[in-house]
């Protein structure tokens, strides 16, 4: 299953909730303001790092670039472009957008 999150972990609890509900082997894709959750040296990174062994985490590159965050991606998070986004949706039987 692919989980898609689009809100900053400092503004909404959707990323924390999503990580708590993502089963083993699930993929989590961070887009829009949720890409801040894929960056280092901040108060929210612990939760994401803790989940990395259990779920695959992806972040949308153009959203990282737009926000000046491309150099701060947590190691282990895979950066994808729009084509990669489409591939992820196609690879998973279901996807869920966390609102």
């Amino acid at each position: 299953m692919l989980h898609i999150v689009n809100k900053s972990p400092f503004e909404k609890t959707t990323l924390a909730s999503c990580l708590a509900h993502a089963g083993p082997g699930a993929a989590v894709l961070l887009i829009e303001d949720a890409v801040y959750g894929a960056t280092t040296l901040n108060a929210a990174e612990g939760a994401l790092k803790g989940a990395l062994g259990r779920v695959a985490v992806y972040a949308l590159g153009p959203d990282l670039e737009a926000r000046g965050m491309k150099e701060r991606v947590i190691e282990g998070v895979k950066v994808v472009d729009y084509a990669g986004f489409v591939d992820l949706v196609a690879e998973h039987k279901t996807s869920q957008s966390w609102l």
């Binding site: 400092f10 153009p62 959203d63 670039e65 926000r67 000046g68």
Partner: peptide, 15 residues
């Protein structure tokens, strides 16, 4: 999250 508005190096071409 308002502090993110002021971060240097924003490049929005891709979005």
């Amino acid at each position: 999250d308002g502090v993110y508005q002021l971060v240097k190096g924003q490049q929005t071409k891709g979005i």
